[in-house]
Nucleic acid binder design. Sequence first.
DNA 1: TTGCAAGCGGTACCCAGGTACGGGCTTAGC
DNA 2: GCTAAGCCCGTACCTGGGTACCGCTTGCAA
Lengths: 142, 142
Amino acid sequence: MSGHYEGLRSGQLAEAAGVNPQTLRYYERRGLLADPGRTLGGHRLYPPEAVTVLRVIKAAQRLGFTLDEVADLLETARHQRRDAGLAERARAKLDEIDRRIADLAAVRATLREAVAAGCDDLMECARHERCPLPFEDATPRS
Amino acid sequence: MSGHYEGLRSGQLAEAAGVNPQTLRYYERRGLLADPGRTLGGHRLYPPEAVTVLRVIKAAQRLGFTLDEVADLLETARHQRRDAGLAERARAKLDEIDRRIADLAAVRATLREAVAAGCDDLMECARHERCPLPFEDATPRS
DNA sequence: TTGCAAGCGGTACCCAGGTACGGGCTTAGC
DNA sequence: GCTAAGCCCGTACCTGGGTACCGCTTGCAA
């Protein structure tokens, strides 16, 4: 019964989840982590499930969701709403990622052409026509 | 002979190149744009070639080069050095882009699996095993 | 009981690539 | 000569995802 509390201190949670302790406070401010309980002295005391929440956050980040999107996803999950669950947002994110891949593929093609054409000096290429580099203004496209 | 100067004022150059006038000063600070001449009153006066330089910068950015890399590329071009021309850096950038595409493709595959598996709630998935989402810690891989 | 690590809140800083603001000058046209 | 627009410089702000520093308080064990 040594007067210590149940749960994890911020340092322990940070350690367990592999993040910086400061990041916990940051996530709390951003609404990703619910306000934890406190000891009498005001130190944070997290329930063990917090480790899972952090792992979920990191997994979602790896899938390309921003912290705002993750906060939203968690909020939806907490309130059992069905308005736009993970599946739908995952589909939207898939489209986004497909677009990013397409953009990168276009850039890759251009770079390949530049290498193939033997471009070796940007300014030179810009002057002497017939260089594959896209000097004309960007097509906004969005 | 109305007493006005030859060349472009910053507003004209910005307009011609499709950038914000503030961006010109920013590029100057970053070493991408050489210090232009000045009028007697201290206003910048750019040679017409500056438009080309700006187009080159924008083209290189579109190809995924950072401003520091572009500054380097232009510096190399100006001094006629052969130490690591555009071609070599373009090849390095190609590899970088290939890696980014591969990362995105992996994320895409995971998202597809999650959608296919019918995941609709992050926290639920994290608890009930057999969800394809990568909750285990990231493989650093770099 | 006392010593010291760990945690507290608030604020500032980091990266890139810009953009905005404000007070005061210059320039161009009439 | 006058006026309006344009430009000067310095500085602060923005996004996104954190990280660091500070002086002070708590927790806990020897």
